[in-house]
Design a protein around this nucleic acid. Structure first.
Lengths: 215, 215, 215, 215
DNA sequence: AATGAATGAGGGTTCATTCAT
DNA sequence: CATGAATGAACCCTCATTCAT
């Protein structure tokens, strides 16, 4: 006779069969934690699968190779970030231009994005990007997308605020670079810069550019 | 025309003996090139020594371990950068405040520092810094030193220019983060940002802060 | 007559999966053969795994390190010997005191224990024991255990035979040292001493001490 | 002007030139200390030459290879022991048979021979002898020589004392094996057996055989 | 679908030996 | 004679991958 229950079992080390997408996410999450904890170079299939509570073979079953798993992990992190940005960018009906600017800053330097976890993963991939075209492509695509969106937003703000002598494109590059640099500062020297401090710096940057849209 | 024959000898591996410091530098240089080319995780003792034109054992003879070689390489790059900054910072007798500000920007975004080589190495180590305390310590020490020097310089400029409502410390953090972010942009998306473009962004940042000291 | 052809297949490395304990024993046995054949210092993981018909990684999979494999091998040999002694010591119901004495001698200088194999392993570890505390500890523990057991046995024999002026402890040390020395002689100069000769020497020693219990 | 003094110089790291034989002995002594301290398998040319206070190349200059150095070291230790035995054996004019017997025992279990140093070296070589014919040959030659001398001595004692039913050859083998075993006990389990205890055991052995020649 | 024992290429490191100095 | 920097084969070990279960 078979049992119906699954969870309350006395932990019988049984081979649970779960949908493909769930397993994939489970492994990607574990990969992120491993990269943050051990670094990219010390993240092994062993480490990842143990962290995920799965067996070694399962990772290869779902991702074919370590390379693929790492690529997918980067893509996931990238998409998550992009979608976060996009959601705010597209909230025209809900928030004003100034409101959206503020929300974006809150998002980019907020608790979710600035978890050590997340930032560590970014820079782990950046560090290898110089040598791995795949990473470079994914990262630069993300950067370009963000730059274009911010440029468009800044254009709207410039038009809205009647700012003069402001180059939206240059500003977008500057702002996004600043954000990257602040992430790095938060990651490398957390004692020298608080999250609030980082936020203040970015806010000051935007205030300089758009005094009537950013406090 | 053919050469004299001595060279066509059976190519017998000449064993040159060179001073310790020279060999060390040779290996550090090779390490930098390898990290830039293959990435930190694919930089092996094999790769490095071949790049340096030396044998495998030689690297361990002079650095004892790969770990040590990598640490020393990071230290070298760090020191080189710091000394470059310091040289300009200390040129009070030669250059005005505005002149020094300009020189620093030229240095930080100039051809020497922004070689792909160099930037790739920075970010390679940053990427592993989250997992390796040694890297983190070296990097954060460098960052802190730079921040303090810039803060002091900005203080002088503020006093000199009578700027008001400017926080030198915050500005230093912002400026250095911006530089880091621009390096990253140059490294990851070189097609989206020229060196001149990066320079313009940083210049605009400083101009906003100190209009009378930066064009 | 030729065989059926299945065997002449392109010899594709079959990967058999066996229980952990079996693999461990397989590797320990191979280690013993290697030490006997090549010496401890020339026994490499390569050698051992090839001898065992396994791949290199397998040894580390089951023993983590060479050091551990060597320790476990010593422990195995030690335990095997101890258990052999103990089995005879504890056969009170079956054999008389004199009978047990004889059986012990037969065991210690019998064909199983005096295989070149086994003796070579003993002395290989003894040779390194001076420099490796782990070996020394295991060996001295075994020696002490044996000495205590023999002392107790000799006490019984002394009581049984009414022997006077005999120090059981001293005799135990002497007897066991003699056995060690005979093993060494068998190992180093097998041409100068036959197994029967060694047996005669030990028998003479016991006869001197306990004439009424040993022929 | 050259100086005449050599020793009182301020340690000027100079290349002292010494006679060949002296250098050889210096290296052999260092080898013995290293084997005793680090074990045979961890004794490297590096270790030995540093211990000897010489440079790496010098060892190869005088011994051509490590193998040769080790062989010569074994030969030296062997000869030293043999000469010690021989000196006593040949002292017929000076000491009586009983006296010589006592002197031999004193020598074999005396402070010089039973230095941990010395014993460790013996067993280090014994341990590898099973796999290295050269060691085996040297060791077994020494053993055979000792056995023959003791047999001859015992013959004289038997004749002198009128002992009956004593097999000189068997006794020699037994005695020498006992000595080997006692060395091993002293080396491996020094806490379980004092030098005095070992001496007592050997003395008891000889007393049993030759009561009128050994107390 | 899931497991993990088994594999072996490739990593870092050691060390006997060579040879320019 | 003497030195020690340089070499590279061979060591131990890790780890992505495979595949019998």
């Amino acid at each position: 006779m078979f049992m119906a229950v699954t969870a309350s079992e006395p932990e019988r080390k049984r081979r649970k069969i779960r949908p493909r997408s769930e397993r994939r996410q489970q492994l990607i999450d574990a990969t992120i934690r491993c990269i943050a904890h051990y670094g990219l170079s010390s993240t092994t299939m062993q480490t990842v699968t143990r962290e995920a509570g799965l067996s070694l073979g399962t990772a290869n079953l779902h991702f074919d190779s370590k390379e693929n798993l790492l690529n997918e992990t980067l893509l996931f992190v990238t998409n998550e970030y992009n979608e976060g940005l996009l959601a705010i960018m597209n909230s025209e009906g809900i928030a004003s231009l100034a409101g959206r600017l503020s929300l974006l800053l809150d998002f980019q330097l907020g608790p979710s994005v600035t978890q050590r976890h997340k930032m560590a993963v970014w820079f782990a991939y950046y560090g290898e990007a110089g040598a791995r075209p795949v990473y470079q492509k994914i990262c630069s695509r993300r950067d370009r997308a963000a730059a274009q969106r911010f440029e468009a937003l800044f254009d709207s703000i410039i038009a809205d605020g009647g700012y003069e002598n402001v180059d939206a494109k240059q500003l977008a590059i500057g702002y996004l670079s600043l954000i990257d640099g602040l992430w790095l500062a938060l990651l490398i020297g957390p004692k020298d810069l608080s999250k609030a401090g980082a936020r203040a710096v970015a806010q000051a940057f935007l205030h300089q550019a758009f005094p009537r849209h950013m406090a």
